Amino acid sequence: MKSIEVDGLTFKPYLSQEELHPHIARVAKEIIADVGDRDPLFVCILNGAFMFGSDIAHLLDKPYEMTFAKYSSYSGMHSTGRLTEVMAPQIDVMGRVVVVLEDLVDTGFTLTEIKKLYLSRGAEEVRIAVMLDKPNAHKDASLVLDYVGKEIPDDFIVGHGLDYNGFGRMLNDIFVVDEESLRKKNQSLNI
């Protein structure tokens, strides 16, 4: 892997698809062990979790239902502190064991609000499965993550579904922002 440029920032190699796969495979096994016979409904959170959701679906290889939902709470590299439901799940969560598939937990705000929302809509139980978790960035100490692929530091990353201003999602590998590149871009914006 070599460094790449995404929307004017340089990103360095961080985690290859091959390094990530065993963590995702473990999450799939844990999900099957916990809720496999309870007819779970998987809700893949767009846009970022589309690759993680696909990875999990391939590993589960069962006739489970999966739907998609989209929420907005970020602008650029920062959380806005507001959750907007852009697209609700197209399958009713009422009475279902819901497994939310998310790419990354940063502050935890989005997942906390999604869990409350689905429980208020009658979900029997809401479980959270994440590809990557930044535990040092959590602002909500009450957030419980049921399945975590890999814990990582509080770095800004792109790839495998994660983006920077809409770019970089389709990279198979994950890249971390080069701090010098970020510093230069911030300086040029302050001029």
Rank of each mutant, 00 (worst) to 15 (best):
Ile191His: 12
Val27Cys: 11
Leu182Arg: 12
Lys70His: 06
Glu124Trp: 02
Asp106Cys: 11
Ile91Gly: 04
Pro89Asp: 12
Phe175Thr: 10
Leu132Phe: 02
Glu102Pro: 08
Pro135Gly: 03
Leu60Asn: 06
Asp37Met: 01
Leu83Arg: 11
Gly149Ser: 04
Gln90Trp: 04
Val43Trp: 00
Leu101Pro: 09
Phe167Ile: 01
Ile56Val: 15
Lys70Tyr: 03
Ala123Lys: 06
Glu124Ala: 15
Asp37Val: 03
Ala49Thr: 10
Leu132Trp: 00
Glu102Cys: 09
Gln90Tyr: 00
Met51Val: 10
Val130Phe: 04
Ile56Phe: 03
Ile24Thr: 12
Arg121His: 10
Val176Asp: 04
Ile157Asn: 09
Phe175Val: 08
Glu180Thr: 14
Leu83Met: 15
Ala25Glu: 13
Val130Met: 01
Lys115Thr: 14
Val105Ile: 14
Ile56Ala: 06
Asp37Trp: 00
Leu119His: 12
Ser79Ala: 13
Asn47Cys: 01
Gly159Asp: 04
Asn172Ala: 14
Val100Gln: 05
Glu19Asn: 04
Glu180Arg: 05
Ile31Thr: 08
Glu113Gln: 13
Ile114Gln: 10
Lys70Gln: 15
Leu119Arg: 14
Lys139Ile: 07
His160Met: 03
Ala49Asp: 05
Asp155Pro: 00
Ile174Ala: 02
Val158Cys: 04
Lys185Ala: 13
His58Glu: 11
Met66Tyr: 15
Val93Leu: 10
Ser79Pro: 10
Leu182Lys: 14
Phe11Asn: 13
Arg183Glu: 12
Asp92Ile: 06
Leu143Gly: 13
His160Gly: 10
